[in-house]
Design a protein around this nucleic acid. Structure first.
Lengths: 224, 224
DNA sequence: GGCAAAGCGTTACGCTTCATAACGTGCCTT
DNA sequence: AAGGCACGTTATGAAGCGTAACGCTTTGCC
């Protein structure tokens, strides 16, 4: 056997496990620094120092700064994806309106709890970084968006769609997404600072309702 | 007179004019480089070189890199402001629906024609920069947003508001803005790349109509 | 016209960061 | 027990931001 100790731990050798752990630790450290001092002030050097290593060691795990950023973006998409799944599952499958609204709220809540990840995905002050057009971020992004698609597919399948403003369900969904995303983005970037939290919550429920109707649903907004 | 040649040119001395011209040239050069290579890859050094100067010379005009960025952001807001004004004025004052829709379209068109400025304002890949909370960008941003406010004020004044989803006209306007902005942002950041230009145009008209109804208007969407 | 002052741009320098090169060290296989 | 490989270190290079010190030009005053 050339592969070392292929024991009972998922077919990965001890080396591979240690390596994977280090990769995770690096990403955690990076994200933590981003939270602390902003993605703008993230220095490759500091990541290493914050975990008791010297800067060049990181190059064993990431080819350069951009590759690390790409990994962070992809992870952020996954995090969003998980959050949306979790939120959706809190509502029974037959309550379509409820699932839609819950997803909208989950989207916003995730953005509020993970501002740095939200910023990484949707382009806020990030250093000299541009996502590679063919990189893993694209796949991860597509995966995250499939939640929305499934949501509407579910709805369409059951013939419960009302009269969305456009005939194509996928297009209607994009508009609904844009409606929710606009609110979340502006809020995350501080453009709603004139309103207090309660007012924003109230307005968001209204906005989510607008999105729902755009998607062809007709939720009872006052439930939210 | 201590002020030198205060001739007929607006009360500014020749020195002051030359200085202002240089400032403008620097900003133009910076923006041009941003368009070429992306805001991420903007180097202070390159700005100077691109206009035949040496890097330290720029410090006569801007204290540091951030101050230049702040100026660019403020200018971007002004540019947006001007564009919105111009667009709105193409529709007669008594056509409120028309003015609203024109403003929405103007917002999107400006974003499409000035992607780098849009990115500067709404947070896309910009180097290690965070806008100062008390800087000129805030004032410029407020100015730009007053267009929207005026628009709704106009409408409310004439008692033409329908039944917006929230009682406060200003709040309804924010939601309308979020609706339009969500579409524009996602489109600008390439999240609608699956759709061709024509499909996007069609969808945007629908989205602007949604926004209008949110603001309490009831436009004939098929006009757009 | 001559002179002092201020503005402007240059070269020279220091500091920080990203990234590479060359070198040691410990684990893991055989 | 020995060799290979992954890992981490120190040493070094290159590039960018920002400061300091210097010289030229313009400007305003006699």
């Amino acid at each position: 056997m050339t592969d070392g100790a292929t024991d009972g731990s998922g077919g990965r050798s001890r080396r591979e496990r240690l390596r994977a752990d280090t990769v995770e630790e690096i990403k955690r450290a990076a994200l933590s620094l981003i939270v602390e001092r902003g993605a703008a002030n993230l220095r490759f050097t500091d990541i290493a120092r914050s975990m008791g290593m010297t800067p060049p060691a990181l190059y064993r795990y990431f080819a350069d700064r951009d590759e690390l950023f790409t990994a962070l973006v992809a992870d952020s998409y996954d995090s969003l994806s998980d959050a949306l799944t979790a939120t959706r599952e809190t509502v029974p499958p037959d309550d379509l309106d409820g699932r839609f609204m819950a997803t909208c709220i989950g989207y916003r809540t995730w953005a509020q709890r993970n501002p740095e990840r939200f910023a990484l995905i949707f382009g806020a002050p990030v250093p000299g970084y541009a996502a590679p057009p063919d990189g893993p971020t694209v796949a991860a992004g597509r995966r995250a968006m499939e939640h929305m698609v499934e949501l509407v597919a579910d709805t369409a399948e059951r013939g419960r769609l009302g009269s969305p403003p456009v005939p194509d369900a996928a297009e209607a969904l994009m508009l609904a997404w844009a409606t929710v995303h606009g609110f979340v983005t502006l809020e995350a970037h501080g453009h709603f600072h004139a309103l207090d939290q309660q007012a924003r919550d109230r307005l968001f429920a209204v906005q989510a309702g607008v999105a729902a109707r755009t998607a062809g649903l007709s939720p009872a907004v006052d439930r939210w």
